[in-house]
Design a protein around this nucleic acid. Structure first.
Lengths: 120, 120
DNA sequence: ACTGAATATATCGGCTGCCGATATATTCTG
DNA sequence: CAGAATATATCGGCAGCCGATATATTCAGT
């Protein structure tokens, strides 16, 4: 699963949203760190739909503008959960190894004086 | 940062390793979940070197076979730490939203046994 | 002695996927 | 009336992953 797909699924995890709403939601939930681009979105949406992870929930016309809402399927929910698990495990493994690298004696991998503070 | 790059950095976080060793290490540390391919590795290694996140540590000839060891730079360590932080945050956000989606009343996004059959 | 697997390096082409640019249309703000 | 925001969608370039391929040595099995 790509990063973009993961964040789209995450944005849809609590409630159905439309494309533009997903864009804003991803930016918000990641605190501005992840910027999902418009050009990326629809490709991801199509792929996730083809994979059965999301479905078109409904179409609304709000103030003259079409809103196409998507929601997670059961499979999408499961996939997101599994991916979140993998990511947490990966992040945890990385942190642990950073700590191991620091305490290791022999040939410390470029651990300078200014580093310790930033890595906690 | 791509997934492949992240896992290469993670594999190098505790001590310097050579290409083939990284391959095996990534598979091991991810419990077989991540399979870094040979064709992917050297491109990643080149890119990480160009970005200054890793450097060639040394070259050894062990039993007639060349071993090219890489290690993290300070910048690489910082980048890995930051990426691990982002991943943990993303995983956490996803988990939280999954929980929110489940407890939410009105239009539950495909949660529960009753919906399971009908959603496709 | 020979074969195949493992170890170890590296390259190349195809395919997938991200993103900037672009297009269209309505509403709201200045 | 112009520009920004909302909202959709497509297209082409480029980056990056991966299977296939090439080369060379060591080790285990027959």
């Amino acid at each position: 699963m790509t990063q973009a797909a993961f964040f789209v699924l995450t944005a849809l995890a609590d409630e159905p949203r439309h494309g533009y709403g997903i864009l804003r939601e991803v930016e918000e939930l990641s605190d501005g760190a992840v910027q999902l681009r418009v050009g990326t979105l629809y490709g991801v949406l199509d792929r996730l739909t083809a994979d059965g992870l999301i479905v078109l929930d409904r179409e609304e016309v709000q103030q003259g503008r079409l809103r196409r809402y998507y929601r997670l399927t059961d499979e999408g929910m499961r996939a997101l959960d599994a991916e979140a698990e993998r990511m947490a495990a990966g992040a945890s493994a990385a942190k642990q190894r950073i700590a191991e690298g620091r305490k290791a004696g022999g040939t410390p991998p470029v651990t300078g004086p200014g580093l310790a503070g930033g890595l906690a």
